[in-house]
Design a protein around this nucleic acid. Structure first.
Lengths: 185, 185
DNA sequence: CCGATCGAGTTGACACTGTCAACCACGCAT
DNA sequence: ATGCGTGGTTGACAGTGTCAACTCGATCGG
């Protein structure tokens, strides 16, 4: 339902209708529309974190090197955002419903962020206090790319399909340079 | 209204009520809620582009150097997003209403993007075909920072107020390095 | 075995929304 | 003078989230 028509198209009554139950039945399971929404977001976050974690292994199930795992993480992140635009928007694109804080949604988000932090830590020569700062930079940059792609901003800016793809690769390369530059020094 | 309660809190009827007119009067000026919303977004885009352009001059009204103008652009961008979180979210955080395309909203967005592209072009030694790609990278990165700040994600991730500020500066420094690195070479 | 309890579903109502339709009043140009 | 567009009105309709009260069946303690 969210897929066809955006977030506002999610209606508890329509959900109930499609399930063939009364319009109040959902309230026996979720105390409000926002609680349902928050639970949906939680599932997205868990699924997303799983996807990120899986990037530590290659197709054959063999563990990747730390460097490879880090690079793959970025691609898996962007791939996930591209493949599941609605889930991605739910998690990071729209403000969480107010009840999200009450039911501890932030912890699930932290789990996803910790994957990135751990990967980043694994490729550092020495650990100083900038790990969190670097991780935040990488995340915000990758997130920026993902949300630009997801918002179709590039189509609005008259980027061709090819140029848009090139722009994503270009941006990833820039971040790659930052992340790995002190290793080449 | 959007400020207190999010986008969904914008109701044409409530608007009319506050204006002391009938619930149908707004329809004489906007053919639908989405058209009103799109027009609001257009104003935001124009105001935003103006703010970006103004960053070419310092407090005394004197033009900045190209390098200075480029750096200031980034800070003005982040400052605008921080000061006008709702406007920013409207422009770049939530999907545009469908009618946005019909009334040519994309052109206003392009005007803002063109400011960045022009600034970036002014500091390049040689112009090749990567200007758009670089501009898109800078924009997506800055946008990533802005939306992370705006979403209060850092509070959810247990970043202290100070650490969050530091993270923003850190990220800006990283982008700065990329943007200016070939000039120092 | 029986009655209480509780989970899950029901119907009905209420206030709210966006939108369509019809109707009305005024200013202005032909 | 007349016609018409502009901005305003009221009334209706379908759809929404949510509160309240009711029902029904299973499950469990005595």
């Amino acid at each position: 339902m969210i897929a066809s028509g955006g977030l506002e198209a999610l209606s508890l009554r329509e959900v109930a209708r499609r399930l063939g139950i009364s319009h109040q039945a959902p309230y026996k399971h979720f105390s409000s529309r926002d609680h349902l929404l928050a639970e949906v977001i939680r599932r997205c976050l868990k699924d997303f974190a799983d996807a990120l974690r899986s990037s530590a292994f290659d197709e054959a199930g063999q563990p990747r090197t730390a460097e490879d795992a880090m690079r793959t993480l970025g691609f898996v992140y962007l791939d996930y955002a591209a493949r599941h635009p609605l889930q991605y928007r739910l998690m990071f694109g729209t403000p969480w419903p107010a009840v999200a804080h009450d039911i501890g949604l932030a912890e699930d988000a932290r789990a996803a962020f910790d994957v990135l932090r751990a990967r980043l830590n694994a490729i550092r020569k020495r650990d100083d206090h900038t790990l969190d700062l670097d991780a935040m930079f990488v995340w915000s940059s990758i997130h920026g790319i993902a949300s630009v792609v997801e918002s179709e901003a590039m189509r609005h800016l008259n980027f061709s399909e090819d140029k848009a793809r090139e722009a994503v690769l270009h941006a990833v390369r820039m971040i790659d340079r930052i992340v790995f530059e002190d290793r080449h020094a």
